[in-house]
């Protein structure tokens, strides 16, 4: 078993206020980060597709085709830079439509979601990733604010969402990319709806984000065990919280309004049985399909080393014959 898993760039807080966060917008920051990821023992990265960074002509964050073209000319040059930094590939591109919940026009939401998801498919293809991980929906609470009718009846919304995913799956297939759907505790789409859709739909597979599953009320190890046959990718994320009942439908469910806390913690720091998950995926998924996901951690460098310490500990408990370093 190789211990060279993937590392998600989602560990970098691109969205929320914190001191010194402006440095994340410079090319310099990212180009220093890649070799540090490799130094921590991760040789694949997961890239969140961030269409906001091309609005206004800001291209410091390498998470759109526009940014890559502006800074590197083309994706091949960017991949060469990654390779020179010790990053052998992009494990997946992820995309969430929260940005498009900003007015009462549902056509705007679906139109923008479809447009940018299609762009994200091409982005994944160009980066050599064969998986696009999609959030099933934007935050339910934010959708409820701009579309209050959804509180009473989300049936049409769900049907329209699944229709969009069917269309995107066909487009992705043409590009040699699979769609991965990631059940999320804050989504309008129930976990079972997502799982059922993945079972039925061509070119769509399941992505298991362990903290999301835990916060949805399921045991992530058991959930993974049940659905390992349709699971394309695991995001090893963690939480210390027991459930999300009081904040899953908040306008921003990443920040519980009644009791401020970090919902996500660095992998290995919460209650998700990360060692059990690593053991379960061994032999079922290639290591680059297992991605350490320290969503918006307060300290990316500490998070990576925490992850590495966890992996080292896990490997020390694994028979040496099973450990094959890449």
């Amino acid at each position: 078993m190789s211990s060279h898993y993937a590392m998600s760039l989602d560990m970098i807080n691109r969205h929320y206020q914190e001191p010194n966060r402006n440095r994340y917008e410079t090319r310099q920051f990212w180009e220093e980060l890649y070799p540090l990821i490799a130094a921590a023992g991760f040789d694949h990265i997961e890239v969140p597709f961030e269409p906001v960074w091309q609005f206004g002509g800001r291209s410091g964050v390498p998470m759109t085709p526009y940014s890559i073209e502006t800074k590197y000319g083309n994706s091949e040059s960017y991949r060469e830079l990654l390779a020179s930094a010790g990053i052998r590939g992009v494990s997946a591109v992820t995309f969430t439509p929260n940005l498009f919940v900003r007015n009462p026009h549902m056509d705007f939401y679906f139109g923008a979601f479809g447009h940018f998801a299609t762009q994200a498919i091409g982005f994944a293809r160009d980066l050599g990733a064969d998986l696009l991980v999609l959030s099933p929906s934007a935050y339910a609470g934010r959708l409820f604010h701009y579309h209050p009718g959804l509180k009473d009846d989300a049936g049409d919304f769900i049907v329209r969402t699944l229709t969009l995913f069917t269309e995107l799956a066909a487009k992705a297939k043409d590009e040699g990319v699979k769609l991965g759907l990631r059940p999320e505790y804050w989504s309008i789409l129930p976990v079972n709806t997502v799982v059922d859709f993945c079972r039925q739909q061509d070119n769509v597979e399941l992505v298991v984000n362990t903290a999301h599953i835990a916060l949805s009320g399921s045991d992530p190890a058991a959930f993974l065990n049940t659905n390992i046959d349709i699971t394309a990718y695991v995001q090893l994320s963690d939480t210390k919280l027991e459930d999300s009942n009081t904040f899953a439908r908040a306008p921003n469910p990443e920040f519980p309004p009644q009791q401020a806390t970090q919902v996500f913690c660095d992998a290995g720091q919460g209650r998700v049985p990360v060692n059990d998950i690593l053991e379960r995926v061994r032999g079922s998924l290639p290591p680059e399909r297992v991605c350490f996901s320290n969503h918006h951690t307060r300290d990316p460098m500490r998070a990576m080393l925490r992850n590495r310490a966890l992996i080292n500990q896990h490997c020390s408990q694994t028979p040496l014959s099973d450990v094959v370093e890449a």
């Binding site: 914190e18 921003n252 009644q258 009791q259 401020a260 806390t261």
Partner: peptide
């Protein structure tokens, strides 16, 4: 200020002790 996630943090001291930083 980039996106400010809370209107008012109700548990300032407890939240501070989560990681002892100025976040």
């Amino acid at each position: 200020w980039k996106v400010v996630p809370y209107a008012q943090v109700p548990n300032f001291r407890d939240f501070y002790y989560e990681d002892n930083t100025n976040s």
